[in-house]
């Protein structure tokens, strides 16, 4: 012991000068430090492109039109009292929910069909079916706009060819709403299809064999094996698509520009209309912030379910 003490005291003054360097070196070598440094670019991106704009939007939404004074929650209150905005909330929900449900059903059906095509022929179909998702939506929506055009509509031409009357695709509110949903479903279904296809491929064949021996018909296999095994992917895909669809801007902007009579506006297109086109940036920010609580509630429940299933199954 005595010897140890002496050694320490003797070494003490000699080791003292480079101590700061050693400590820094040790901190730099810690795993947590390295992990933090490596994650830093991502943290910077999230801070710069998500956190800062979100914080700035919240700040903006509390200002008056000329952005000169703080007015608290007045922008939100004015919006909620506006009939047009209440209609936008309603339309956004109808648009997002019906589009996501249709995309989920069609995507599941397509994925199932693809899954049963032999691997050799599957790739070409998979590639073709992915096209709507790959084409920039602003461009493909222009194509749809031309197909919906009152004078040159190829869809109406087809309808007339089979003896059906022309449809006022973008001119009548009901049809305009349907058109926006149709285009969104057309563009978004491949995403569901490819996610579901991956999920279908991950279900072990032996589970289907076990179910077949247990007495399951094809439908029962789908209900009791396929769907429960895909629940997490379905949940995540629906959540992701709900967020993207709720925030959809380009389809409405190109196809209807919110018309007729602002009846096809969704949050994003209305925020653009109010904030940029009408020059009331704080109120535009308030419109876009309305999406957040709605989606947060949905995300909370979906992700809670996913986590719970992950703990039990994976």
């Amino acid at each position: 012991m005595a010897l140890d003490a002496t050694t320490v005291t003797a070494a003490g003054p000699a080791a003292a000068p480079p101590r700061t360097g050693v400590t820094l070196h040790r901190i730099a070598r810690r795993r947590s430090t390295i992990a933090f440094l490596m994650a830093l670019p991502l943290i910077a991106v999230i801070a710069g492109l998500v956190a800062w704009p979100a914080g700035y939007a919240i700040y903006l939404s509390t200002l008056n039109r000329r952005m000169t004074s703080f007015i608290g929650l007045d922008n939100f209150q004015i919006l909620l009292e506006s009939e047009t905005f209440r209609m936008v909330i309603w339309q956004s929900c109808i648009f997002a929910i019906s589009a996501v449900v249709l995309k989920a059903l069609l995507g599941f059906w397509l994925a199932h069909m693809l899954h049963h095509i032999p691997t050799k022929g599957q790739r070409i179909w998979r590639g073709l079916l992915l096209l709507p998702w790959v084409v920039p939506p602003a461009l493909s929506t222009l194509g749809w706009w031309w197909m919906f055009d009152p004078s040159y509509s190829s869809l109406n031409w087809l309808l007339n060819a089979v003896g059906a009357p022309s449809v006022p695709w973008l001119g009548e509110p009901g049809w305009a709403r349907a058109s926006v949903i149709i285009v969104n479903v057309w563009a978004g279904t491949p995403f569901f299809m490819i996610m579901y296809l991956a999920a279908l491929k991950s279900v072990p064949d032996q589970l289907y064999e076990a179910a077949a021996i247990d007495g399951a018909t094809g439908w029962q296999g789908l209900r009791y094996v396929t769907l429960p095994m895909m629940r997490n992917i379905i949940s995540i895909t629906v959540l992701f698509s709900l967020i993207v669809t709720f925030a959809n801007y380009d389809i409405v902007r190109v196809l209807t520009n919110g018309g007729p009579r602002d009846l096809t506006h969704v949050f994003a297109s209305y925020a653009f209309q109010v904030g940029v086109l009408s020059g009331n940036i704080p109120r535009g920010a308030a419109v876009s912030l309305f999406m957040f609580p709605l989606l947060a509630v949905v995300a909370f429940f979906i992700l809670r379910g996913v986590n719970q299933r992950n703990r039990e199954m994976a």
Binding site: P204, I213, M313
Partner: peptide, 20 residues
């Protein structure tokens, strides 16, 4: 079909339904 053969099978990797 297997469901009407009145047989039961035990698989090498058990093939238990993970969600049940």
């Amino acid at each position: 079909p297997p469901r009407d053969r009145d047989i039961a099978m035990v698989f090498q990797n058990y093939a238990l339904y993970p969600h049940m």
